[in-house]
């Protein structure tokens, strides 16, 4: 989890620095939005990596046995 947040933070800082320098406000918002989404998903997955998989969840939703 710590490694993940650190990696995402480094990537974010690296990318946003260039966007701030070029004053690309819309792009800054888009990058921030996608970074927040990735962090939320990462925390969700890494808090319990052995939770039911996406396909498992989908199949239980459509009542498909496998």
């Amino acid at each position: 989890m710590v490694k993940f947040i650190l990696t995402v933070s480094i990537i974010y800082v690296n990318d946003i620095a260039r966007l701030i320098r070029d004053r690309r406000i819309k792009d800054i918002w888009i990058l921030t939005l996608f970074t927040i989404f990735t962090i939320i998903f990462g925390i969700f997955y890494l808090s319990d990596p052995y939770r039911e998989s996406f396909i498992g969840k989908l199949f239980s939703l459509i009542k498909e046995e496998y």
Partner: peptide, 16 residues
């Protein structure tokens, strides 16, 4: 870069 990080995690989560 950020989308590759997302797909790295999603590829683990999608199936075991």
């Amino acid at each position: 870069k950020i989308s590759l990080v997302f797909f790295y995690l999603f590829s683990f989560y999608i199936a075991y």
